[in-house]
C-alpha cells in the first residue's frame, strides 16, 4: 500500500517535471527532432545516411525490408543531460484529441519493475485507437494486433493504462520492441543501475494506428556504456496490408490469404500485449536438431529416424531451422521439424 502511494507520488512529481521539460524542448509525438542520422540495418549491417524521424518525416525512414527495427542517429538517443537522472519515475502523455497515445518516458530501476514472479494483469479493457480483432493463420499467435505497451510491463509494472497501450502488430510487439525491453530489464536486474527510456509512437497525420515507434534508452550510472540505443520499430506485419487511418487489415497474398473479418470488439480472450516471453517464429530461433550428414536431412531429437541413424552420420547441433536449410539440409518428412 505504502509502495503504491509512493509510486503514485513519484508519477505525479515526474509528470510535472517531465511536462515542463517537454514543453520547453517542444518534444511531442509529432516533434521528434529532425537531425541528420545514420540508419543502420541491424542484421545485414548496411549503413545509409538519411534524415531522421519525425511524424512528418517518415519518408526519411527506409521502407520496411524484413528487419523489425533500424538504428537512428547512429544509436545515439536524444536525451538531455537533465534527463539522465538516477531517480526512478514514469510518465505517460495524455491522450490527444483523437484518443491516441503520446510519448512515454521513464527512468527504469529495480523499484519500477514488477516483483519477481508477479504476473501481468488483464489489459483487455483498453481499446487503443485503430483496434480491430483480425486473425490470420500465418501470423504468430494468429492475431495481427496486440495491445502493445509503450513501456513494457516488465519495466514499469503497468497494466491497463490507456496512456501506455497502442494498437501494434505482433511483429512490432515481439520482433521489434521486446528485444529492447528484454535488454533493458536484464541490464537493470543484473547491475541495479537505471536506464532512461523513452518510447514515442509515430502517427502520420490523423491516422489511428501508429506507423511505428521510436525507442530510446541510455544507462545512467555508466553513461551509456551498458545500454545505448535509438531505434525505429516498424508497425507492420509481413503478409498483411494495414490501413493505418482506420486499422483495418487484409492479407496481401504473400504469406497466405486466411484471415477473418476485422471486428472492433475488445477481444478479451485473444488479444495479447508486450510481454517477456519469447514467441518468435520457429524458423529463426535456435532449437536442437539431429542432422544426418550423409543424406542431409535434419530431425527433431526424438524422431524415430534418429535411432536408426549410424553414429558416423549423426551430428547434433543447436541451430536455426532457416540456417540448416540454407546449408543444404532438408526437413525430415516423419518428424517435420
Amino acid at each position: 500500500m505504502k509502495q503504491q502511494k509512493l509510486k503514485r507520488w513519484r508519477r505525479l512529481l515526474a509528470g510535472v517535471i517531465l511536462g515542463a521539460v517537454l514543453a520547453l524542448t517542444g518534444c511531442s509525438t509529432s516533434s521528434v527532432k529532425s537531425v541528420k542520422s545514420k540508419i543502420k540495418n541491424p542484421v545485414t549491417k548496411k549503413t545509409t545516411t538519411v534524415q531522421a524521424s519525425t511524424a512528418s518525416d517518415l519518408s526519411q525512414i527506409p521502407a520496411y525490408s524484413g528487419s523489425a527495427y533500424v538504428a537512428l542517429n547512429d544509436n545515439k538517443p536524444n536525451f538531455t543531460d537533465s534527463d539522465l537522472t538516477t531517480k526512478s519515475y514514469e510518465h505517460y502523455s495524455d491522450l490527444d484529441s483523437l484518443g491516441r497515445c503520446g510519448v512515454a518516458m521513464a527512468c527504469v530501476g529495480k523499484d519500477t519493475m514488477p516483483k519477481s514472479g508477479e504476473q501481468r494483469g488483464s489489459i483487455s479493457s483498453v481499446t487503443p485507437t485503430g483496434w480491430h480483432n483480425a486473425r490470420y493463420d500465418f501470423v504468430d499467435g494468429k492475431m495481427v494486433y496486440n495491445r502493445c505497451h509503450l513501456i513494457a510491463h516488465q519495466l514499469t509494472d503497468e497494466n491497463a493504462n490507456e496512456k501506455n497501450l497502442i494498437t501494434g502488430t505482433r511483429s512490432l510487439n515481439i520482433d521489434g520492441m521486446l528485444p529492447f525491453e528484454n535488454m533493458v530489464a536484464d541490464y537493470v536486474k543484473e547491475t541495479g543501475n537505471h536506464v532512461i527510456y523513452r518510447v514515442t509512437p509515430i502517427f502520420q497525420g490523423s491516422e489511428l494506428v501508429a506507423r511505428g515507434v521510436q525507442m530510446e534508452g541510455e544507462s545512467v550510472e555508466d553513461k551509456g556504456e551498458g545500454v545505448l540505443f535509438n531505434v525505429y520499430c516498424y508497425n507492420v506485419e509481413p503478409g498483411v496490408t494495414i490501413d493505418y487511418a482506420t486499422g483495418y487489415t487484409q492479407a496481401d497474398g504473400t504469406k497466405g490469404s486466411t484471415g477473418s473479418s476485422n471486428s472492433t470488439s475488445s477481444g478479451s480472450s485473444t488479444s495479447t500485449a508486450s510481454s517477456s516471453t519469447n514467441t518468435s517464429s520457429q524458423d529463426d530461433t535456435v532449437q536442437t536438431y539431429v542432422l544426418n550428414t550423409n543424406n542431409h536431412k535434419f530431425h527433431k531429437p526424438d524422431c524415430t529416424a534418429v535411432s536408426h541413424m549410424a553414429d558416423k552420420n549423426k551430428q547434433t547441433v543447436n541451430a536455426k531451422r532457416s540456417d540448416l536449410i540454407s546449408q543444404g539440409y532438408t526437413a525430415c518428412g516423419i518428424c517435420k521439424p
Binding site: K40, V43, P179, S276, S280, V286
Partner: peptide, 12 residues
C-alpha cells in the same frame, strides 16, 4: 562452449 540466453535481444 556456448552460453545461451533464453531470450531474444537486439543484435547487429
Amino acid at each position: 562452449v556456448i552460453y545461451r540466453w533464453d531470450k531474444v535481444y537486439p543484435a547487429d
